[in-house]
Design a protein around this nucleic acid. Sequence first.
DNA 1: TTCCTGACTGCAATCGATTTCAGTGTGCTG
DNA 2: CAGCACACTGAAATCGATTGCAGTCAGGAA
Lengths: 333, 333
Amino acid sequence: MIGLQDVARAAGVSPATASRALHRPDLVALRTRERVEQAALELGYRPNVLARGLRTRGSRTIGLIVTDILNPFHATLAKGVQDAAEAQGYTVLMFNSDEQPDKERRALETLHGHLPMGLIVVPTARTRENLSVVAGLPTVELDRASGLDGAHTVMVDNVSGAREAVAHLLGLGHRHVGMIVGNLDISTARERLQGYREALEAAGLPYDDGLVLPGDHREQGGRLAALRLLSGRERPTALFVGNNEMTVGAVLAARELGLEIPGDLSLVGFDDSRWAQTMSPALSVVSQPTYDLGQLACQHLLSLIAGQSLPGSVRLPTRMVYRQSTAPATVLA
Amino acid sequence: MIGLQDVARAAGVSPATASRALHRPDLVALRTRERVEQAALELGYRPNVLARGLRTRGSRTIGLIVTDILNPFHATLAKGVQDAAEAQGYTVLMFNSDEQPDKERRALETLHGHLPMGLIVVPTARTRENLSVVAGLPTVELDRASGLDGAHTVMVDNVSGAREAVAHLLGLGHRHVGMIVGNLDISTARERLQGYREALEAAGLPYDDGLVLPGDHREQGGRLAALRLLSGRERPTALFVGNNEMTVGAVLAARELGLEIPGDLSLVGFDDSRWAQTMSPALSVVSQPTYDLGQLACQHLLSLIAGQSLPGSVRLPTRMVYRQSTAPATVLA
DNA sequence: TTCCTGACTGCAATCGATTTCAGTGTGCTG
DNA sequence: CAGCACACTGAAATCGATTGCAGTCAGGAA
């Protein structure tokens, strides 16, 4: 490995000068600097990030923990974060928590040893406690809020997104609108449920516990919840599903039960995706600016690292996308 | 930050002994070791990976470069790699090349500074040259072969997968089977084309240049290629598409042209996915053991790092999945 | 000429963990 | 009782880059 030593020797200067030439150009005579730069180039010098990080306690590295990289939503978040980080010369250490607090904790511990300069995390149910592992590290919570006091969060406006979706269904005349909600330990689930309730209230309809079922944010959980919800005697004629994977499950459940969409069942999902566009009928969804969310979180974090003080919480708007999975309620009277 | 110094002081020993106690237990008296372990636990000691890596030149870190994390195929590869790495206590530094040799090169340079112990890369068109940046580093090529001599590769059997898909279409009576092939600088594209040719040959049919169009591995490229292929006078009655994203494009193109699948056009894609299963008609595909591919590549790399010598190339089989996007050719006479 | 200033440069310490080498002390053998 | 081997432990060097401090030198002022 080519070290700064080698560059210095080749340029006929001390390592100290070589170091300064490369990143504090104003402190070095022009001709010296040129010699060093030339030597560095010729030798293909790459600074040893470990040594530098050790000395400066600044690794130009940030940590990212998402809950499920296989979920395109999270993959897109990750891409947004990475692109923004790379643009500023930062490297991202990415981990998966698989929604498991234990894995999240281990990821945090591993991360801690790498001395990252900041952290972006999509919280799990126990992030609030887990974050003590990296206490003091600038941290941004992405997509969800752990509930930690004074935390910086970058999220979408879940309440109004959900409200709009449910209002749309109610506007079509549906009176039994079910919801598959997700794990209520997680802020997005709570907020989307809140939006659902607000829409009902605005329409003067009562909130019915029996129409709201939790899922586990995965396809299987969505499918099971939908099967139960749609097999009851008073089956809902419309369904609002709280995340993308569970929506797949709900579609599969409807097919299993022989329910036509949107004829027998109107469906709206939260978060858009490739399959939501290509399936038939194409799915109406609450679309999120996912990539922007990731980028913004990263920029926010980098500002934080730079010592700027920023508003604690950022909300991006969602956008309702109308496709073919919703239809007016048939009047059975 | 709690350092080894602190642990040593708390345990009343020298840093040297503390270090040994934690990872060379046989060299330290039992009681000393216990004191150190206790102190480490109480103080919440986490080794500084930077310092350790600097000293040992072994960071327990591996690099991973995929071409597009937004593509679920690559996301799945990445998950496989990460899970396998984590199981062995390795941390993964992941980068995206976005299929661009320049970005790949920058990723390699950044990676190099982090002193990873090995590298897994999904090659782009110019990986062969780019790899010189990390010359000497144990490297495994994943999904594709860069063509580098003596490289270790973990791939699927593209030729036989493609052959099987095309043979299926031919078996249904199709005589004009088109292919959207991908960038021929990339080994998977070449191999899948090879399979296409072999299937034609086995059926005694001539190879027709006009039926084979390149795409760029993205949705848009697939769509444009399909539009051209399907707008000609002698339009193919069946289409084999060489990767997942381009297949979406082909489906969209068919819809634009008002072609029914499978009535007017039989379609087989390479690589399965969520949307291939939920779209209607559900898409027949050549399915790949994607997650296994990633895991295997990582295990292979870790063995390499451990100094074992291994077979240079591993091939996993594909599996043809028959769904509803193919039908017998209508006899027009 | 002498002294001073300011622009550069180099020495050496530093970050934290590992590891070589040189002790120290114990117990055992002859 | 002397001598030795062995089991432990600690001092100090090391990895490579950065940086506080001090030194050199040229040019200008007095």
